[in-house]
Design a protein around this nucleic acid. Structure first.
Lengths: 109, 109
DNA sequence: CCTCACTATTCAGTGTTACTATGTACCGGT
DNA sequence: ACCGGTACATAGTAACACTGAATAGTGAGG
């Protein structure tokens, strides 16, 4: 996709990753791969790692280092209570925005 | 709202404004007022004006100066063909994102 | 043994976007 | 003359995703 997607992902990608982690714990490489499968073909690896470090610093996730058979140790992330609360607010904000846009899309065009 | 909304608006606000203008032509002050009515309570005036100048420079809208009875002249914006095309892509991008998030919201939680 | 491919993480520098906080200017009512 | 409402503009800041590269461990093939 293009620049439009890049800009639209701001503030949303964080919620997406947290939502993934709310389903089950995962590590960066895994999340990146999953996103690519879902069609987010141009999300850079660096972006995901930077995001993970950010939400870790904010205390939204817990981290555990797990050795890998095929490479350097993995950093496995899991949402904690604070992260779950943040995610809940994320869904509220998204819902609000989604509703307005739905209206605009229906009526306007 | 909070910081979450601020970040989520990036890349979306542009589409919102274009969608409004696709419904009917409008000027900055009017758009700001409308957004506030819709619940975007903390969108700064400056933000809208900066955005309008941006999309004008990109050639997505046509501008006409119209004298006002109650103040300085209004800059009335109208989407042109290029803007309509951009808006179409915006809806596609939004739709894609909306679908993924819908899935995540259903399944994950 | 050595390189290649895959796994896995990190980081410096850049561009875009929205917010804050102003400033300018025009008008009508008191 | 002053003030509030209308209307637009801008310099500086913060946050976020991308680019492009570096670092490191493992196993397979030549």
């Amino acid at each position: 996709m293009g620049k439009q997607m890049t800009e639209m992902l701001k503030g949303v990608l964080e919620g997406i990753v947290l939502a993934i982690l709310a389903g089950r714990s995962a590590y960066g490489y895994e999340i990146t791969a999953w996103l690519r499968e879902q069609g987010f073909s141009d999300i850079a690896e660096g972006t995901v790692y930077a995001l993970l470090i950010r939400i870790e610093r904010r205390g939204l996730v817990d981290v555990e280092k797990v050795p890998s058979e095929k490479g350097p140790p993995r950093k496995v992330y899991a949402v904690n209570a604070q992260g779950r609360q943040y995610l809940e607010e994320f869904w509220k904000t998204w819902g609000f925005l989604s509703d307005r846009l739905e209206q605009l899309h229906q009526g306007g065009n």
